[in-house]
């Protein structure tokens, strides 16, 4: 069982990671033309990173 303190710290870490994902300069890397499976790179990246952050949140919260 994770103590509330550790859980809090892990969640803050997820937050910081999210801040990194959705900011300059990482965003500028994907700000270009080109597609992944027909989807523009930027959109693909944004939704993928978003999904990852949600996944991490779920992992931290639901893990016992």
């Amino acid at each position: 069982m994770i103590t509330p303190g550790i859980k809090g710290q892990q969640l803050v870490a997820v937050f910081l990671l999210g801040c990194l994902f959705f900011n300059y300069p990482l965003l500028s890397l994907f700000n270009q033309s080109g597609t992944v499976f027909g989807v523009p790179v930027l959109y693909a990246y944004l939704f993928l990173a978003w999904g990852v952050v949600i996944g991490l949140l779920a992992l931290v919260i639901e893990r016992r």
Binding site: P4, L11, F15, G18, F22, L46, W50, V53, L57
Partner: peptide, 11 residues
Amino acid sequence: IGPTLMMALWW
């Protein structure tokens, strides 16, 4: 995306 990030701090 902002709310998603904020959720992490909700705890």
